[in-house]
């Protein structure tokens, strides 16, 4: 029933697609973390307007479907801004802003879950806001943030498949391309699913292990 030659004959295209997927996963997670750190810290400040600004950002990107964000950045944004945005930049911006909003929430929740007594103790020995954050709060918060960060990053890798909608040649784009001339979508999409499983299952297990060692370090 399955014709495996469809896969083996087009392994080169799938490989290229996979590299593109991994590339976007890594760079958007990296940029998303920077955005998340920035927006998260803004949300944790005591200056009300900044807090609200951070909340607006988070709610905006968290509540618009990622596909809409991507299509909007690629098709609508260039018209409004009057500039040319390549599909790579559109994909990068859309995916990074999206995952950044989730990371920001994870950071905020992680920091706020640290015992307030820790802030008291750090303040009492004369630490400044920056010293408290850097030395006391963030190291404790990061340990609690490992599981949700890992979870969100795994979702992010799967979300990169939406890039195919703005014609970035990722794994899913290549799959639909292959099935368009082989007429064997079943084999091709199964292969894509298996590739994601092979990459993500070990990462999930790794994050579980990190979670455990993080818990025992407390």
């Amino acid at each position: 029933m399955f014709d495996y030659t469809v896969i083996t004959n087009n392994i080169g295209l799938l490989w290229q697609g996979l590299l593109m997927t991994l590339y976007f996963t890594v760079i958007t997670i990296g940029a998303g973390m920077l955005i998340g750190l920035f927006i998260g810290l803004i949300q944790l400040s005591t200056f009300k307007p900044l807090v609200i600004l951070g909340q607006i950002y988070v709610e905006f990107f968290r509540n618009i479907p990622l596909l809409v964000t991507l299509l909007w950045v690629y098709y609508a944004f260039p018209i409004f801004a009057g500039i040319n945005v390549t599909k790579f930049w559109a994909g990068f911006i859309g995916l990074s802003c999206y995952v950044g909003s989730f990371y920001a929430e994870i950071l905020r929740a992680g920091v706020q879950s640290v015992d307030p007594g820790q802030i008291d103790a750090a303040t009492a020995i004369g630490m400044s806001y920056g010293q408290r954050m850097r030395r006391i709060i963030l190291p404790q918060a990061f340990r609690k943030m490992i599981p949700p960060l890992a979870g969100q990053s795994i979702i992010q890798m799967k979300n990169t498949t939406l890039l195919s909608m703005i014609t970035v040649p990722d794994l899913l784009y290549q799959a639909s391309y292959i099935s368009s001339f082989t007429y064997r979508p079943m084999e091709v999409y199964t292969a894509v699913g298996v590739i994601f499983l092979i990459i993500l299952v070990p990462l999930t297990l790794l994050s579980r292990k990190l979670e455990k060692s993080g818990a025992s370090a407390r």
Binding site: D115, G117, Q118, D120, A121, A122, A124, I125, I136, P139, Q140, R143, A217, R218
Partner: peptide, 13 residues
């Protein structure tokens, strides 16, 4: 000033 708390509040890490 040095402060000592009811819940100790040592830095756990």
């Amino acid at each position: 000033t040095g402060m000592v708390f009811q819940q100790f509040n040592l830095f756990p890490h």
